[in-house]
């Protein structure tokens, strides 16, 4: 039986609260943000005027913007790559541990980073890496690995890699948990059948496991890309984008324009540009995912 759709106005009531919420708290603010991007509004003055595209040209000609974009790309790609590698391999390793108690204990230990609120991540890692009293620099020096205390958060070449390590630490458990859940949906029958056929482990992984969990992985990559690209607080709280902008990603660049320099108009324009970039990336991703889904259906 198909549900009778005609003249059923009551059905709108189900979705109305959600639609109202999205419109009031999403569409309207977004609209005003786009509007501000064409003005010279500042944080502290009540008057402002329309300035056309001048904010956009100012941003697109600002070398710091391009630097921030590049930093964002590095930050996202590296973080995601290692989160995926470690998260995925950890899930596989956990899955092949047969002892139930051991598996449970390891699982709990491995998801600990996920339970840290970002501010706590920032505080503990700043403390661990502190260039004067930090555990890690001091240990490295005591072990004779480095001659003097390494400065993870201020040596320009070390800052981004350090931040990526922190982000991987925080992010891999989430990947692991999701992959683990997906792995458990692969039916044992298929493995057993393959084993009878004498298939090698690697083959089984490649032809049975991977296709089965491909969609989960694909989706995870999409969602995490967006999330990491957008993440603001972890870098803001650890280095604030410094030194000398080496860790300034686009969200930090936008924050600084708006809340430090007080250029609301220009910061809005940068935000709109960020949004366009994200929409493009996601459109591409979803195209691929759709294709996969169709392949899976057929």
């Amino acid at each position: 039986m198909k549900y009778k759709v005609k003249k059923d106005y009551g059905r709108w009531l189900w979705v109305l609260p959600a639609i109202a919420l999205v419109i009031c708290l999403f569409v309207y603010p977004l609209g005003s943000q786009v509007f501000y991007s064409f003005t010279n509004k500042t944080l502290i003055k009540s008057t402002y005027g329309i300035r056309g595209l001048s904010n956009y040209t100012a941003i697109l000609t600002d070398p710091d913007f391009w630097l921030a974009l590049w930093t964002s790309v590095k930050w996202t790609v590296l973080s995601l790559l290692f989160q995926m590698l470690i998260g995925f391999s950890a899930a596989l390793a956990l899955n092949s541990i047969k002892n139930k108690v051991a598996r449970q204990v390891y699982r709990i230990l491995l998801i600990i980073p996920w339970a840290f609120p970002t501010i706590a991540i920032a505080i503990i890692w700043k403390w661990l890496l502190n260039g004067i009293y930090g555990f890690i620099p001091t240990l490295l020096t005591q072990m004779g690995i480095t001659g003097q205390l390494p400065q993870f958060l201020s040596t320009p070449d070390l800052v981004m890699p350090t931040l990526v390590v922190v982000n991987v630490w925080f992010g891999f458990p989430l990947i692991m948990v999701n992959v683990l859940a997906a792995l458990q949906t692969v039916s044992q029958d298929q493995y057993e059948a393959a084993q009878i056929d004498g298939a090698r482990k690697l083959h089984m992984f490649w032809y049975i496991t991977l296709p089965h969990i491909r969609n989960v992985i694909g989706l995870l990559v999409v969602l995490r890309t967006i999330w990491v690209f957008n993440s603001f607080d972890i870098i803001y709280m650890i280095t604030g984008g410094g030194p000398a902008n080496v860790s300034t990603t686009l969200p930090i660049y936008i924050y600084n324009l708006g809340w430090v320099n007080k250029f609301v108009g220009r910061s809005s324009a940068a935000a709109v540009i960020l949004l366009i970039i994200l929409l493009t990336i996601c459109a591409a991703y979803f195209c691929v995912l759709n294709k996969w889904e169709k392949e899976a259906d057929s």
Binding site: G131, Q151, L153, S154, T239, G242
Partner: peptide, 15 residues
């Protein structure tokens, strides 16, 4: 100390 490049007044004075 190299780290002071990122130090605020408080971090700095703490030294």
């Amino acid at each position: 100390p190299a780290e002071t490049i990122n130090y605020t007044v408080l971090d700095h004075a703490t030294l």
